[in-house]
């Protein structure tokens, strides 16, 4: 049953968090980031210039979704879409509204999914990107809705669709609603595909659970970033429930390429050129 007081409280918390996040402009450039693979220290600004790829060991570290899109689109120009879609406490789950407000203030994001339109190498595209900084990129209803809207927009505008996947799967606090987003997004991708649309699934670290078992696995072309974890049951789940020890590199991009589940592993610095090339190869085709 919807409680008007908790609804109101949620809205107020949300606004408060949003205000705080805007006010907080940290001197980010001075911050140092340690590569979790080789322990090399990087100045944040230098790392950002290198698209968050470690200059020492080549590890592809976390890149904020927005920064990725700035590097991807022509002249860093894109239009953000569906900004009105915000997360909701669909089950009235204890503590979730507060948690959402904290996540908004901590991440500076309104949800884990960003949806934009713009041009890549002169070719128009609809693009969605999941940012794991918000609730670990889990697929709540707002994420499912944005992915679905992105597919529907791509279909109505006759544009290709690119989705940068990440995230640990379901949003526990949204329970069954979260689970059902797997069906909703897969059905939307199917409709888009039946209409002749090109969908490039771009898998980034880590992509698991319900995101792997829905849209991330349904691309006409599936690209993965080097070293990205891409699997259904995560390594910890497998080790805890089945007790199996997993070999080094299990479920990583290179493993998935070898097992036939991805088309190519593309280093981040080649992302833009690779996508522009694929869009070019699909232009002037059948329906789109």
């Amino acid at each position: 049953m919807p409680n008007p007081f908790s609804e109101r409280k949620r809205a107020l918390d949300f606004l408060k968090a949003l205000r705080q996040s805007v006010g907080k402009k940290k001197s980010a450039a001075q911050q140092n980031i340690t590569c979790k693979h080789c322990k090399a220290e990087h100045e944040l600004s230098a790392l950002a210039d290198a698209m968050y790829v470690c200059s020492q060991c080549g590890a592809h570290l976390y890149i904020p979704a927005k920064e990725r899109l700035l590097k991807l689109f022509d002249g860093g120009q894109f239009e953000e879409r569906f900004t009105e879609i915000a997360p909701r406490d669909v089950l009235g789950f204890p503590g979730y509204s507060k948690k959402l407000a904290e996540q908004v203030s901590r991440s500076g994001l309104s949800e884990a999914c960003l949806c934009v339109t713009g041009k890549i190498g002169g070719f128009g595209a609809v693009c969605a990107a999941i940012d794991i900084k918000f609730m670990m990129g889990s697929m709540g209803t707002a994420v499912g809705e944005k992915i679905t809207l992105a597919a529907e927009l791509a279909q109505s505008e006759r544009l290709p669709l690119i989705i940068f996947s990440a995230g640990g799967g379901a949003r526990m606090q949204e329970g069954i609603y979260s689970l059902m987003q797997m069906i909703k997004t897969s059905a939307a991708i199917r409709r888009f595909s039946d209409a002749g649309g090109l969908f490039i699934s771009y898998v980034t670290n880590p992509t698991t659970g319900g995101i792997t078992a829905s849209f991330a696995s349904l691309g006409d072309i599936i690209i993965a970033e080097p070293g990205a974890l891409f699997g259904f049951a995560g390594p910890r789940v497998i080790e805890q429930t089945i007790g199996e020890k997993l070999p080094e590199g299990f479920q990583r991009s290179e493993f998935q390429l070898e097992h036939g589940f991805v088309d190519a592993i593309v280093p981040r610095k080649e992302m833009r050129a690779t996508l522009a090339r694929l869009l070019m190869l699909h232009s002037g085709g059948a329906a789109l």
């Binding site: 078992a213 829905s214 696995s217 699997g231 259904f232 049951a233 497998i238 479920q251 097992h259 589940f261």
Partner: peptide, 15 residues
């Protein structure tokens, strides 16, 4: 949720 299932594409099979 096991190794053999992941090797044969569990996520993709469900999707």
């Amino acid at each position: 949720p096991g190794k053999s299932a992941e090797e044969r594409g569990q996520g993709m099979a469900i999707a």
